[in-house]
């Protein structure tokens, strides 16, 4: 069984490599170091955001508010940067704080009010959106200080800063899930919430922490994005939701909880980014990207269900 699961994990990496090879054959420019770095840099905010979703999925829930939280955090950062005279670090802290707060509310709705997570976080989606509109009004914020933009555009030791941040986040989440009792408990809640409760785990608290983490990571993704684009509007976050669900599932994280991890999510996101990058290189209109992603989501989830049925 371990061999089987090893092969399954390996197969995803294999898919990524195969896809890359096909693209490289069609367009040799794909393999240029600059293009490869570009792909990883593009994927970085999505990987960070998807990491949060991965943790929520591990508990057997889903966080539909993720795109909305990205938007809200970005707009709050933009507001502090352009509408106040506060230091840029305050912008980061308040953006991250807003993410945590959104997660706290979602978590309470799920754990205490016992709303299904899809409904609770869908509500949060609207609230976050509403707040974003209320704060920003009709005009986008743009033109941020250079120190802040460094987060999105800077280069450290030849590698873009977003990649450094993404690697750090991935490492921390990996260690958190694997080597902390809270991480273990998250798997337990997803694997069997009843047994978790009957084993004396504080399921409510674990769920609330989970959604707060998801909010925090979404906010971090939003900050990097804002810093990179040097501008922010209300549509900045929404496109991140679908890939955030698709990439963990493609990476082997089960929609029913208890199984999966951050490694697969990174591969899943890279597959999608490579797909988009390839479409650009091959001059396929970016308008078809949504179509490709939709198809990939369905296929990925179907594969997940199919494997589960086969191994059950």
């Amino acid at each position: 069984m371990t061999l089987k699961s090893f092969l399954l994990r390996f197969s995803r990496l294999l898919a990524l490599v195969l896809l890359s090879m096909v693209v490289a054959v069609l367009n040799p420019n794909f393999l240029k170091i600059s293009n490869l770095i570009n792909i990883v840099r593009q994927a970085s905010p999505q990987i960070i955001i998807s990491a949060g979703m991965t943790i929520v999925l591990l508990t057997g829930g889903i966080d539909l508010s993720i795109g909305s939280v990205v938007t809200l955090a970005s707009i709050i950062a933009g507001y502090v940067l352009t509408q106040t005279k506060l230091h840029w670090s305050i912008a980061i802290v308040s953006a991250l704080g807003s993410g945590l707060l959104c997660g706290l509310v979602s978590g309470i709705l799920v754990a205490k009010v016992k709303l299904p997570s899809a409904i609770a976080t869908y509500g949060m989606l609207w609230v976050g959106r509403g707040l974003a509109f209320a704060i920003m009004g009709a005009f986008p914020y743009f033109g941020f200080p250079n120190a802040f933009r460094y987060i999105g555009r800077g280069i450290l030791l030849g590698i873009p800063v977003p990649i450094w941040i993404m690697v750090a986040v991935a490492l921390v989440v990996y260690l958190f899930l694997k080597y902390t009792t809270l991480g273990k408990s998250i798997y337990a809640v997803g694997a069997n919430p009843y047994a978790a409760k009957a084993s004396g785990l504080r399921v409510d608290r674990i769920l609330i922490y989970t959604y707060m983490l998801s909010g925090l990571l979404a906010a971090l993704g939003g900050i990097i994005l804002t810093a990179r684009l040097n501008a922010v509007d209300q549509d900045i976050g929404a496109p991140f939701l679908l890939p955030a669900i698709a990439s963990p599932v493609m990476g082997g994280t089960s929609m029913t909880g208890g199984r999966g991890g951050i490694g697969g999510t990174i591969i899943g996101t890279l597959i999608m980014t490579v797909l988009v990058n390839a479409m650009n290189l091959l001059r396929i209109s970016s308008l078809w990207q949504q179509f490709a992603i939709g198809l990939v989501v369905v296929l990925a989830v179907w594969l997940d269900m199919w494997i589960k049925k086969k191994t059950a």
């Binding site: 798997y187 337990a188 694997a191 409760k197 004396g200 785990l201």
Partner: peptide, 18 residues
């Protein structure tokens, strides 16, 4: 209420005494 079916044996054993 008892087991975590998809988790490994060792994790099941320590789950109540983390």
């Amino acid at each position: 209420d008892g087991i975590f079916p998809i988790l490994p044996l060792q994790t099941n054993v320590v789950m109540a005494s983390l």
